[in-house]
């Protein structure tokens, strides 16, 4: 069975989907990704779908599942490189890929994850003084 390669770049895992997804490859990808997130401690996942001509409800659900799994493991998921034709088809079908963040290309995706990560750290640092003022 073919497997989708998962590459580690800094604090980010990059998944580039280059083949037609079947049930088996989807499940394998989910398992592999979950393992890699835990093993590497990465906080961002980028899924590159530039090579996909067709994104149907099956692929859409797979992306949603991956995003949910990553979220549980404290990693932000960004889907990048969706083609215009694919986006138009998804809109016409009424599929909206809820809960998935998107970016135009891998570079923008990495910026997005870095920005989200920075916000989160700021927020955690800001947390303590807020708590003190809230409960005097």
């Amino acid at each position: 069975m073919e497997r989708v390669p998962i590459l580690k770049i800094g604090d980010i895992l990059l998944v580039s989907i280059q083949l037609d997804m079947s049930d088996q490859t989807a499940v394998a990808l989910q398992e592999d990704l979950a393992e890699r997130i835990v093993a590497t401690g990465c906080h961002g996942v980028i899924i590159d779908i530039t090579a996909l001509d067709i994104v149907d409800s099956f692929v859409g659900r797979m992306l949603s599942t991956i995003a949910s799994i990553s979220k549980v493991l404290d990693a932000e998921t960004v889907v990048v490189g969706m083609r215009p034709a694919v986006a138009i088809t998804l809109v016409e079908l009424g599929l909206s890929l809820n809960g998935i963040r998107t970016a135009l290309n891998v570079e923008r995706g990495m910026e997005l994850i870095a920005a989200a990560r920075a916000d989160e750290l700021d927020y955690q640092l800001d947390d303590d003084p807020d708590a003190e003022t809230a409960t005097p």
Binding site: A87, I88, L104
Partner: peptide
């Protein structure tokens, strides 16, 4: 919505 799906 389509532009959002593409990340813009």
């Amino acid at each position: 919505v389509a532009a959002r799906l593409m990340g813009a």
